[in-house]
């Protein structure tokens, strides 16, 4: 269970303060596929970064399976990201000089795993996303869909509790995007929480938890009802 209680996030931009989140409350159950939607600048990516321990809130509390993320030190947050979170980004975020295999190995090598073990696990993760035969290819040699599958493999390789995806289909065509979303739904079925930030309402299907954010606040969760009215 992930709980956000009165979470606020304020950025200092020169002399101005930007309030990205303003007292947001949210609960996400394990094994739930949560879609966070909202207009640009509404604070949805910030929300994802806070849950993923990439950033810290200005106020409020974030509990991840009982662990108060706000209390974690910088080192503990890094440890938390490595062991419990898998990130998927719109820009794929692969290191260009490394092969697909080497990119997927990264979290394992940073965990101190022996190289051979890291190699085997990364290969297995790539096999899981259907890219075993492309493992030696660099990001520049892979298509958008393949890159995103490598990202999914990297997110999976440490067997995390939650997958956080920020616009995972934003740079993909519809068909490839559907494949990626389908992959994520499969991960949810394995018992992981999946939180997907997107602009695309088409991604949601009945049974998903929908969170709508506007101006840093959770507005409602009536997407399904609105969808039903149409």
């Amino acid at each position: 269970m992930i709980s956000l209680l009165g979470v606020e996030k304020t950025y200092q931009r020169g002399a101005n303060q930007v309030h990205a989140l303003r007292g947001l409350d949210l609960e996400i159950a394990s094994s739930e596929f949560t879609i966070i939607m909202g207009p640009s600048g509404s604070g949805k990516s910030t929300l994802l970064h806070l849950v993923g321990c990439l950033d810290t809130p200005s106020a409020g509390q974030i509990l991840f399976e009982g662990t108060d993320l706000v209390q974690l030190s910088s080192t503990q947050r890094a440890e938390f990201r490595r062991r419990r979170i898998g990130f998927i980004f719109q820009r794929f975020n692969q290191i260009p000089n490394l092969s697909a295999q080497e990119n997927v190995e990264l979290p394992l090598l940073l965990s101190g795993a022996p190289r051979r073990q890291a190699h085997e696990q990364a290969r297995s993760a790539l096999r899981q996303v259907g890219l075993a035969e492309r493992s030696s290819h660099r990001p520049s040699e892979l298509s958008g869909g393949e890159l995103q599958r490598v990202t999914v493999a990297r997110a999976l390789v440490n067997n995390p509790d939650a997958i956080l995806a920020d616009e995972p289909t934003g740079n993909l065509d519809m068909e490839t995007g559907d494949q990626v979303i389908s992959m994520l739904r499969h991960l949810k079925d394995e018992g992981r929480a999946c939180i997907v930030v997107t602009h695309n309402p088409e991604l949601a299907i009945p049974g998903d938890s929908l969170v709508y954010v506007r101006d840093g606040k959770r507005v409602d969760s009536l997407f399904r009802e609105e969808k039903g009215r149409h």
């Binding site: 993923g52 440890e79 062991r83 980004f89 692969q94 979290p107 940073l110």
Partner: peptide, 8 residues
């Protein structure tokens, strides 16, 4: 990227 995958 390194930090997002857990690099301290």
């Amino acid at each position: 990227i390194l930090k997002s995958v857990g690099a301290k």
